[in-house]
Nucleic acid binder design. Structure first.
Lengths: 324, 324
DNA sequence: GTGTAATAAAGAACCGGTTCCGTAGTCACA
DNA sequence: TGTGACTACGGAACCGGTTCTTTATTACAC
């Protein structure tokens, strides 16, 4: 419940009313030695006035705080929101300060600096790529930091096993025995894990199969335009995209051209089931990834491990209508 | 830039190094009267040590703070993330503490109470429905509060003009001259604005047209199952859903049954363009809504208006493939 | 009955800022 | 030269907590 008074009641008020020193109230709050009698008395008064300690004063005195800055590349993505839910569900005492970087390195850098000036107690960075500048700033930071999204040496991190994912997709491709494959990839400079790692196993599997690779980006419209061009000049019976979103763009191009290849994507279970045909996709468990991120963060913050921590998450291929 | 030292430098350190009183440094920081000479001196030292004031100490002393709690019903929605972007883009001095309520009234209530105990400077509540308990807590709060999503009397709010939206859709329906219409609605107890207001104009337009209304919920799977049942027993040439998500569920049922009615939805431009056929939908500008929310919040916080503020946002119908 | 330890509580210092108050110095004007 | 206004700045108090030190009280053992 919330006090309806306009002025916040402080520890001093409680102490005065209870006729004790404020240090006694503080001990009461933090489990120090307090007699049964005063404990009950303070109990009553605290309940009556709905007293809650001022977190600013606490953080100021204790020189630490329980606000963790979480920088996400975007919010309108199931992957991200699942990770955030994982964080939430494991959380007890911390507060997450979520900052959207809008997939922009400049904003990401600004966010990191702002979080520092806001005296957060640590940072969890979900990111697609780290610029040198960001790397430097993170290295200089005294805060506990964990990252997700890229396999950055020297940083505590949780990563997806994109190599294994590509391998699994590669194996599955062979059961489909395609004649001509279109690969829709992204620039490795934009995202190394996605652009390179995911495609290693796929390209290995396609060694003896005709295929064409084009570099597009993460946006639906770009993927649509780029794939349209490729499909106009060539016929494909299988399209593999670096993300589900990219594949959805390609689907629209294909249908516009009255073509009906098979499709395979990577990523968010969300898209997979809203498009028709439902999309065959290699899926990662981002919810569990969020939990692992939080566990790793706590370990880094509380145990201060000497060597760099690295947690690997894996996923599995879900076959749906688009490859039937 | 961030200081690489492990200990934070304080205003006292700066004052000592600069050989002035800390009150002088404070005045320097806040634009009080400081001579050119000392200004330059402190400038140099602040830059050298990367000093940033401790926000906890500031908030403690100033008895106010620039953290605004934002409670959202869900994060994996374009509407929500667009609103958040609107908030972000207008923001200068504030920090948004985003809390996900996971469309659960209990968590929403808990979030409101937690934000209070964290001493936020105000609350922006995006919500689908207010329980009596939440209403009471909000009324008792001394904080500036604005809400979005429901037309709640007695609260400062930004709302969507769902009545006008339904009217516009109603007019459009008549140009389609449908024979049998399926309406997929939600319980007005779950969402009054969506469940009732959006359908007033639609039902008026269908006064002389055969139609069936079923109550489903906001989830894709539920909508899919509910619409499947209806479509099995009856043939529809137009399906109107309370949200785009609901319509996507219905699309999947229709295609599974080899039916190809026209579809109209409400809401997020996201879905509309990822599904095929692209969805005709009444769209609201959530980005602009976010901006209006923030403006309204500032007005409420800073000007403390006596009478309840109410801002109405409107949108427009976007015709796409699904009604061609 | 006295010495000692344990417990309960008070009091003061401190965290890092902002702000109020007082004062010294400068300048202008009568 | 004296008065008033203004600027620059130092010192102290304060915000609301936590924590360390000190003191009072009680209990227990010898």
């Amino acid at each position: 419940m919330i006090n309806s008074m306009n002025k916040k009641v402080t520890i001093n008020d409680i102490a005065t009313i209870a006729n004790v020193a404020k240090s006694t109230v503080s001990r009461y709050l933090n489990g120090g030695s307090v007699s049964e009698h005063t404990r009950l008395k303070i109990d009553r008064i605290v309940a009556q006035y709905n007293y809650t300690p001022n977190t600013f004063a606490q953080s100021l005195k204790q020189q630490k705080n329980h606000t963790i800055g979480v920088i996400v590349p975007r919010l309108d993505s199931i992957a991200q929101s699942d990770m955030l839910r994982g964080l939430d569900d494991l959380n007890k005492d911390d507060t997450f300060l979520i900052v959207n970087a809008y997939q922009d390195a400049k904003r990401e850098l600004a966010a990191i600096e702002k979080l520092h000036s806001q005296n957060v107690g640590g940072i969890i960075l979900l990111t697609a790529n780290l610029t040198d500048e960001i790397r430097d700033v993170l290295k200089a930071s005294p805060l506990p930091i964990v990252i997700q999204g890229q396999d950055e040496p020297n940083f505590h991190r949780v990563i997806m096993d994109d190599l294994a994912a590509g391998k699994a997709v590669g194996q599955y491709i062979q059961t489909l025995a395609p004649k001509n494959v279109l690969l829709l990839n992204v620039d490795t400079k934009i995202d190394q894990a996605v652009g390179h790692d995911r495609f290693v196993g796929i390209k290995a599997a396609l060694a003896k199969t005709p295929h064409q690779e084009i570099i597009t980006d993460f946006k639906l419209d770009t993927a649509k335009a780029d794939s349209y061009q490729a499909m106009q000049t060539d016929d494909f019976d299988l399209v593999i995209g670096a993300t589900d979103r990219i594949v959805v763009g390609a689907m629209q191009s294909a249908f516009a051209l009255k073509q009906h290849p098979k499709f395979i994507g990577f990523g968010q279970s969300f898209f997979s089931e809203t498009v028709s045909p439902n999309l065959t996709s290699f899926e990662f468990n981002f919810y569990e990834t969020g939990k692992q991120l939080y566990r790793l963060f706590l370990k880094v913050r509380d145990d201060k491990p000497v060597d760099v921590q690295r947690v690997i998450m894996n996923g599995h291929l879900v076959v749906r209508e688009s490859t039937e």
